[in-house]
């Protein structure tokens, strides 16, 4: 919010420099995020392209030296919700409000009981992890991607997702428990545990 107060006036050369040096280096992260949201290579490409075009168009509201990656992720996430989800082949089953209404509270629920074992987890392969992650509703999948794969801080996630940090924490906690359930079910079906 506070960083939106000053608009920059960049020259065309400056714009190109910012675009090349601050925005393009994140294209791999952006593309992978887009793919994990849409599950479709063409959709992911469109989403990334749309994000970069918007970033360029609104470049004057970007302050050089601030967190370009978080800014780009925020645009991508908004594009996905506003324009993309409607036409996407993978409509989300759960919507933000529903999700929040379901478990929104200040205190993070601490129950983490599971009989999943570290050794089992260590033996899992990429495809198993991927399908467990992909089986989560998009809002839960998103916080895990942002935190664990992209390494954003809670504060950055709050800005990207437009939610308070407390909600970031509770959503992340819930997402992790759901992911654990999926991994657990997977381990059971493969006869890893017991």
């Amino acid at each position: 919010m506070s960083e939106e107060k000053t608009k920059q006036q960049y020259t065309d050369i400056e714009k190109e420099q910012i675009f090349d040096k601050e925005f393009l280096p994140h294209i791999s992260s952006m593309y992978n995020f887009a793919y994990r949201l849409t599950f479709d290579e063409d959709d992911a490409k469109d989403l990334v392209q749309e994000t970069y075009l918007k970033a360029y168009r609104f470049l004057n509201s970007f302050q050089q030296g601030t967190n370009a990656k978080a800014w780009l992720f925020r645009i991508l996430k908004n594009s996905f919700i506003n324009d993309f989800r409607k036409k996407s082949k993978q409509p989300s089953k759960v919507d933000y409000q529903e999700v929040e209404a379901f478990y929104n509270s200040e205190s993070v629920d601490v129950s983490m009981t599971t009989d999943l074992r570290v050794e089992t987890v260590q033996h899992m392969i990429g495809d198993e992890v991927s399908s467990a992650l992909n089986a989560l509703a998009v809002d839960f999948r998103t916080v895990i991607i942002l935190c664990d794969l992209e390494g954003f801080t809670y504060e950055e996630m709050a800005k990207i997702l437009d939610i308070p940090i407390g909600t970031v924490r509770s959503r992340l906690h819930r997402a992790r428990n759901l992911l654990k359930e999926k991994l657990q079910a997977y381990a059971k079906s493969m006869g890893y545990n017991k």
Partner: peptide, 27 residues
């Protein structure tokens, strides 16, 4: 340990997709 191993699992085992060659050019 379990929580940390799941986080590590995500970070190490998930395959990243290669950015399509023509994407930057298109943009």
């Amino acid at each position: 340990n379990l929580e940390a191993s799941i986080k590590k699992l995500l970070q190490t085992k998930l395959k990243r997709k290669q950015v399509p060659d023509d994407l930057i050019q298109k943009i």
